[in-house]
């Protein structure tokens, strides 16, 4: 599911404000575009169902 672009814009504004992360108006559109790409990447990862017992180790070991 692709989120409503307006919702993503609102998310960026609210989350950035909550984190105390000022976003210059000149950067805002590009930040939203980049976050849209990352959320799309996250969706592709999330579509793959993982066993509930599978853990991510706190320190990565190959």
């Amino acid at each position: 599911m692709t989120p409503d672009p307006t919702a993503l814009e609102a998310y960026v504004d609210v989350t950035a404000q909550t984190l105390g992360l000022p976003i210059d108006p000149a950067s805002r559109a590009l930040v939203i575009q980049n976050l849209a790409g990352l959320m799309q990447a996250a969706r592709i990862v999330a579509e793959f169902e993982l066993p509930a017992a599978l853990e991510a180790a706190p320190v990565f070991r190959p």
Binding site: L19, L21, A42, L50
Partner: peptide, 23 residues
């Protein structure tokens, strides 16, 4: 803007990627 966007990614997305990594 890539760094700024990365700061806004929800924690669950990161954790799911780390779990997939283990798989």
């Amino acid at each position: 803007e890539r760094f700024l966007a990365g700061a806004l990614v929800p924690g669950v997305a990161y954790q799911q990627a780390q779990r997939f990594r283990r798989w």
